[in-house]
Write a protein that binds this DNA or RNA. Structure first.
Lengths: 206, 206
DNA sequence: CCTGTGTTCTAATCTGGATTAGAACTGTAG
DNA sequence: CTACAGTTCTAATCCAGATTAGAACACAGG
């Protein structure tokens, strides 16, 4: 019941925070591989090098822990993509912005963080109450892509007569599926990004 | 212990077979939504309108039942696609063959059968022994697409300088992800197929 | 009707894994 | 050195869900 940051010196607080972080990371790792129902607290604890009950010092239930993983994963994905877009000059052509979003999305999803994978892969398997809470974040991210694509259509950089929702989802599907097959031994991340950008750009061109 | 088709009249046998089928179907439905670990026998039984122990009359364990679902799902996907390709005239251009494969794959994955969805969504979450046995089927299907794409490249219908493995996987990813977002209320299956074919064709063009 | 085989059910049993209780350990402040 | 807040552990407890045992039911063949 010491969830509130209160007493304890800086060093103490830091250690506790690190344990919490370690557990969260472990949960992301297990969740991204085993799925929501398959994620056992004992496995998470083992990866984090603590005993299972230690989890309850930081979260009040397994469900709460896993929800945090998903939330963080979702936020991280969106933030990375948005930041990458915000870094572009204001006059960047719409199609090029899509290209950057593709790179950013793949970077997060294939990057070392298991959070976004955990969020993406399990989106469909979460218990109803969690799923509902995730919906707002998902919608926000969907909006980013929606405007990306709509802008491209408006600017004439993209075919005007395709179903934009389907197009958007097909692209995101291709990106989200990448973790299933990408093998760093075979291709560098940069190669995959380049191939994807090229195919998508060509695919959407008017 | 009456797993072998032996006594019983035709009518009797048929009824038993129908129950078995009903359970298998129910298992596919639950598996495709809840994931491997999340699939409870009681839920499957409820959908099939039997009691949980009835499952053990036909399968010796939960794992065996779920493995059959995945196997059937995989086979069904491949068979439908291969059949669709075999139905084409021998001189069909490679790129058009890909177009047909796309349609066939989407038809199975978005069609009323939950089997292929169950197979696809859970491929990564299966217990090691099952996953291993699925591998041969997966490889066979991968080979179908490999030669599809290789032929297209050889025939000049497709860009020669892209990483064919990545291209193949990106396309399959887009297809496999479709069940996550497709809403029959919004788009007909035909529309989604057409959009997908168009984007992929354009994306791969030299 | 009576019997035997095949099918499904109800009522245990058994186990894995979440959660709780409370002891023990750590380190800082007095 | 003592006490206390914070952290983690060991040893229960508890429950959901797979599996097993064996009764009950359905129906064809005699």
């Amino acid at each position: 019941m010491a969830r509130e940051r209160s007493a304890g010196t800086a060093r103490e607080g830091a250690k506790s925070a690190r344990t919490r972080e370690r557990i969260l990371l472990a949960a992301a790792q297990v969740l991204s591989r085993k799925g929501y129902a398959g994620t056992r607290l004992t496995d998470v604890a083992a990866v984090a090098e603590v005993q299972a009950p230690a989890v309850y010092y930081y979260w009040s239930s397994r469900e709460e822990l896993l929800e945090e993983v998903v939330t963080v994963g979702q936020r991280a994905t969106m933030e990375h993509v948005v930041a990458s877009l915000d870094a572009l000059p204001a006059d960047t052509p719409a199609m090029e912005r899509i290209t950057h979003a593709i790179a950013a999305h793949l970077e997060v999803v294939l990057g070392r963080s298991d959070f976004s994978q955990a969020a993406i892969r399990n989106a469909g398997q979460l218990p109803a109450d969690i799923r509902e809470r995730q919906l707002v974040g998902q919608r926000a991210y969907a909006d980013v892509w929606r405007s990306l694509v709509d802008d491209a259509v408006a600017a004439g950089g993209m075919a005007r007569d395709v179903d934009t929702r389907a197009a958007r989802m097909l692209v995101l599907g291709a990106l989200n599926w990448a973790p299933e097959w990408w093998d760093p031994e075979r291709n560098s991340l940069e190669e995959v990004v380049a191939t994807t950008q090229r195919i998508v750009r060509a695919g959407l061109r008017p």
